[in-house]
Simulated scan of single mutants.
Amino acid sequence: MSTATHTAHALRDARTMVRRNLLHARRYPSLTLNVLLTPVVLLLLFVYVLGDTLSAGITGEADRTAYVAYLVPGILLMTVAGTALGTAVSVCNDMTEGIVARFRTMAISRSSVLIGHVVGSLLQTLGALVMVGGIALAIGFRSDANPLEWLAAVLLLTATSVTTIWLAVGVGLSSPNPEAASNNGLPLLLLPFLSSAFVPLDAMPAWFRWFAEYQPFTPAIETLRGLLLGEAIGHQGWLAAGWCLVLTVLGYRWALALYRRDPAR
């Protein structure tokens, strides 16, 4: 088989697996709804229940609109993390229910199984971001970004999504059952809480601030906030890009090693 023919077959198999994962998400929407509810509920809770108090602490006056602008970038990154948690459970389901073992006996590209999960999850994540972004606009979020900054913001969200998805695939492959995958993937959902998503770094205790400042989500949130609000980004953009690159490579290699190591699972 020529290289071109092999590539064409691999792409066809990957498209089939992407379609399978999207159909699975449509037929069983409960998991997707569960991971989407968390950022939406947090957005509404922090804006309408805690917004005045937190905005007074940040800006010196009770300005809910200002806090919406501050909060939305963090909620968008939390949406990315929450959707990736669903990917970990979905991957683990496939591994433990035996469907992957059956795929291995078929004349399909072995990499197409992982590609289907990654691309399918990325499309779901982008759809979730559009939905959460629409809710943010409905409750008063407004952006000062120009078209170039909007493009950079979309690219950042896409890159962060790819990073978290590959890490989630590794979590799913390394977990013995879906419940364990859900628990093992919780750090992906908890890290945004330990960042600058809800309050500025200056408001945190000194002993904790160093972790919040340099963990992966804070540079991404600060970069996205700067892009959407037309503020200076400084070195945060380079930190966000560096974290995305390093963690994507690590997540990809980890997932690939786990997938190849246990063909009989």
Rank of each mutant, 00 (worst) to 15 (best):
A4L: 14
L129Y: 09
A145G: 11
A81C: 14
L11W: 13
P73A: 01
T160E: 00
L155G: 03
A81D: 09
I139P: 02
G74K: 06
P205E: 00
C92V: 08
V246R: 11
V41R: 03
A62L: 14
R260H: 11
A138H: 15
T164E: 08
V169C: 06
T105V: 12
G226K: 07
T218M: 00
L247M: 10
A152C: 07
A88C: 08
V35G: 02
R110K: 15
I233R: 01
V35F: 10
C92A: 06
W150S: 03
A153H: 00
G120W: 04
V119G: 01
V40F: 03
W210P: 00
T248H: 09
G234N: 04
R225G: 02
E149N: 09
I221V: 12
Q215G: 11
V249W: 02
G234Y: 08
S161A: 15
T125M: 14
G116V: 05
G230M: 04
A152R: 14
L76Y: 09
T218I: 03
R104S: 06
G170P: 00
D13E: 08
N177F: 01
A84F: 03
T164Q: 07
L22D: 03
V40C: 05
L191V: 15
L50P: 08
H9T: 08
G234H: 00
R15S: 14
A206S: 12
A181Y: 08
S196R: 14
A10M: 07
A25Q: 09
N184Q: 05
A153S: 13
A14T: 14
S30R: 13
F103I: 10
T59L: 15
D144H: 15
A197V: 04
T38D: 03
P192F: 09
Y214A: 01
R142E: 15
S112C: 04
P192W: 10
Y48H: 11
A168G: 05
S55M: 12
L156W: 01
F208R: 08
G226M: 00
R20F: 14
D262Q: 15
L156A: 00
G226A: 15
G237W: 02
L85D: 01
Q215V: 13
V100Y: 02
R225A: 09
Y214V: 13
T164I: 14
R110A: 12
A128F: 10
L157T: 11
T5L: 15
S2V: 02
V199G: 09
R225M: 02
W238H: 05
R225D: 01
P29I: 05
L22R: 13
G230Y: 01
L129F: 14
V130C: 07
V68D: 10
R20V: 02
